[in-house]
């Protein structure tokens, strides 16, 4: 076999040989290759048995604890973005960040809550909505107003009509019609079953703020239900329920 002489230099004829370019740091000069030496490839991490075990353990715990919440994270992302394609992007970013910071997650703590927080942050970054909002915490007033409006529904017969229908579809569209920050409060507490405290942590606001957003959102949806019932022509003309 004719090995051409070039800038690399001469080579011993010893069968299959690894040709290293002159640019390689392991090129030790013309004619200076040592027999039987394994030349490590630059950039390849040295894999010790311990390192492989650590990586495997990390992936196993991530697969076990984080991956199962993907549907929930998607649902939360969708409630924030209201666009399936944007939601997919948010979910991707959420899981990538979660994987990269998995070492910071306290095993045994609430992983879904942790993921929701990462998701919320990803959403805010996508909207560049990091402004601090001063909100009035008036949950009590919202609760009282909602009861007053429900009383009116009882008196005009709407409550009775709603008693016999499935509220689900109407609530679905009422929920979609809510603006932020009210929608995410309902999504977390009512749809995703989070406590006020968990929702507060996920959203990065005080509990009082969650409460007032939540109650206001519920009151708005209740108003939508009433309109929905009336629009559907379900409003009966009854002898009772005088609107005096």
């Amino acid at each position: 076999m004719n090995i051409p002489r070039n800038s690399i230099g001469t080579w011993n004829r010893r069968g299959p040989a690894v040709l290293l370019s002159a640019a390689s740091p392991y090129h030790t000069g013309p004619g200076h290759r040592m027999r039987g030496t394994v030349y490590p490839i630059p950039g390849l991490m040295k894999q010790t048995a311990d390192g492989r075990d650590d990586e495997r353990a990390k992936d196993e715990s991530f697969a076990r604890d984080a991956i199962p919440w993907m549907d929930d994270v998607y649902r939360f992302a969708l409630s924030l973005t209201r666009d399936p394609s944007d939601a997919q992007d948010i979910v991707q970013e959420t899981y990538l960040r979660a994987y990269r910071s998995w070492h910071t997650f306290d095993p045994g703590s609430d992983c879904r809550r942790w993921l929701f927080t990462i998701c919320r942050n990803a959403f805010l970054r996508s909207r560049q909505q990091n402004r601090l909002e001063v909100e009035v915490d008036d949950g009590d007033a919202e609760a009282i107003a909602a009861a007053r409006e429900h009383r009116a529904m009882i008196e005009d017969g709407t409550d009775r009509l709603l008693a016999s229908v499935d509220l689900g579809p109407a609530l679905d569209s009422a929920l979609a019609g809510l603006d932020e920050p009210f929608r995410s409060a309902v999504q977390l507490v009512d749809v995703e079953d989070q406590s006020y405290e968990a929702a507060a942590e996920i959203l990065g606001v005080p509990i009082g703020t969650v409460r007032s957003r939540l109650f206001r959102a519920r009151r708005q949806m209740q108003q939508r239900l009433r309109v929905h019932a009336m629009d559907a022509g379900l409003r009966s003309v009854s002898g009772e329920g005088e609107n005096a």
């Binding site: 689900g168 609530l171 679905d172 929920l175 749809v191 519920r218 209740q222």
Partner: peptide, 9 residues
């Protein structure tokens, strides 16, 4: 109301 909302999930 709340029970119906939970079924949105």
């Amino acid at each position: 109301f709340i029970q119906a909302l939970k079924r949105v999930r």
